[in-house]
Design a protein around this nucleic acid. Structure first.
Lengths: 194, 194, 194, 194
DNA sequence: AATGAATGAGCTTTCATTCAT
DNA sequence: TATGAATGAAAGCTCATTCAT
């Protein structure tokens, strides 16, 4: 049984999300995370190399949920456009359902230093690669414009989603994020349609 | 002559950009900025209230250039689509021409704490308001889809640009950013066209 | 076991007395106190909220000895005049026995800022209240002048003692302070006698 | 014409008293004193060696008034007891008439460092020497107890006065200080009477 | 495995003093 | 004489990490 499977590992990761969301990135001290997790400060270091390792693990563990959902969507027998819609909806849905997580990924974790952000980007890459598969499929099937620059298209899709979520978080979740999914989908589709 | 017009004010702001770009946000100590600016540590405090004030001033001073360019574009007698193209080109151009600034705005300044980012967002808002004017104009003139949600459209435009620039910065400016402007414009236009 | 009972608490308070006495109030840096106490700088902050808290604690801990002695004297079955004598003798004796403490209370701690001195005065008040009990008892028993203004009498007693001790400290303890107690007692008694 | 006679010298000393009284010793920066005096920071250093020199000068200039009054009292053809009464009354009167000065001498200046306080004590000595003359005269004339220890008596007189004034200042001058003079005189006289 | 007391490096800001004008 | 912009040394406090128990 590896460390990641032990109950305290997840306990600490979840505690980190809560502490960061409630206190902000710069006020999320290791001792606070330990207290929230119900363990001693020193115990943290039996499961994580250092504080940075906790933060990256938070992103890995949680991003994993997004990748899994996306992989599931990819196996479905529907059009690329529909897959895109499902992805947006699922992405918005996951964050709507965990406000702490939304705050952490959209606002707080972006305050981390260069090195951590680079490692986070490594984790994010996997998600973007899956996203690319939808775009490629759509172009092959003639649903999306064959002349699209894949990278630009991906940046538009991800940039639009990201900007939409961040605005929603910064407006204190005043409106329903998932309700926006169809509109965002339609807007993006118009841009990419063949 | 107010403080902002004195040569040392700009000297320190420019030094801050260089130091933050080269050392990262968290390694940009006041003493480093002072040294780069060629003044004593204490001199900084004759021109800025505190460190936070330096960082916000960096954003204000530099963002000012973007707003000015955009205001100039808005006065031109061209179509909304053409204005959008000019905006993207000008935005990409300014950052291409100052790699330090690009690093600072796209990566480093986002690591600042909540309070500073809120103030930065205040400055950014002005830019987004100008951007909205282009979108509204386009919708009124029948160039852009009259049924667009302005906020979503703005998020798509800004999100796409932002994501494109950040990717470029994180890839060490390996390719020419301005060259991407027409493609980004075309992609966004397709999405917004009437 | 509360913080005040832990050995390091007293260790740090005692170190503070020595450092302040030997270096002066304004040269008593936290790092010096930590070094003298044989702990790390950070350890100080496990036992004290901040530097101010150390200084107030010094006064509280040490003044506590004076109050205890005085309370003991008050329980004794002797005349008010004799209690006054015992108080003066005991007060002079405690400071004679700890020259560092004498310097700190008579000279250095008075250089502290307004806020600290106000808190110190709070501690001192308890001592003065006990002192008042002696004066009231003496007036009730007909030993002291019944028409005395209690506040003025207390100011004479405390002012004379304080001035006597301060002069002794500033003269580098050249003579024996306790030897002066009977004379001071006689002088004060003459002033207050019925 | 020496520096002390120039108008700016007194201007700065008076400014210092006001600034210290209104802001507290530790918030009385040189620049604040300069501003209050209506001169440039640098000008201060044309009249005073350093900040310490300003503070000592404040005490010298103001204490001079007390010594002059006392010298005048000494020339009068009255009993020692009456001289003592005049001294207390005049001392209380001068401070009652200049609340800023009272705050500065009784509270703020005592926060200065060891060195400054030593120099202040030098100035004070002159006053105490004059005070001794009254006590000696009283003992020679048989008004005061011939067996008194002069130093102790002086400490009682000065300590009582000082404690009385400080209490009055700390109680925000709620009552009239000069009104207390006769009572203080009577109390001290009882203690010293032959 | 778990604890938590102890460590100590690191940084912003103030302000007395100087000196070129 | 007078100015005031510039200087730069100095210190309290935090918190990630360790390690003896």
């Amino acid at each position: 049984m590896v460390k990641k499977d032990k109950p305290k590992y997840k306990q600490i990761v979840d505690a980190a999300v809560i502490v960061i969301a409630e206190n902000g990135y710069h006020q999320a001290q290791v001792s606070k995370i330990a207290k929230q997790a119900g363990v001693a400060d020193g115990t943290i270091y039996l499961y994580f190399k250092n504080k940075e390792d906790i933060l990256i693990s938070v992103f890995q563990e949680k991003m994993g949920m997004f990748v899994e959902k996306l992989e599931h969507i990819l196996t479905q027998e529907v059009s690329a456009s529909e897959k895109l819609r499902l992805m947006i909806e699922s992405h918005f849905g996951l964050l709507s359902g965990d406000l702490h997580l939304a705050i952490v990924t959209q606002l707080e974790l972006r305050q981390s230093n260069h090195e951590i952000r680079m490692k986070i980007n490594g984790v994010l890459r996997e998600y973007l690669l899956q996203m690319d598969k939808i775009l490629v499929k759509g172009m092959e099937d003639g649903e999306f414009d064959k002349d699209m620059d894949i990278r630009l298209a991906r940046q538009m899709v991800f940039g639009t989603m990201d900007e939409t979520i961040t605005t929603w978080v910064m407006n204190d979740h005043k409106y329903d994020l998932v309700d926006l999914a169809p509109k965002v989908h339609r807007l993006l589709m118009k841009g990419m349609r063949a």
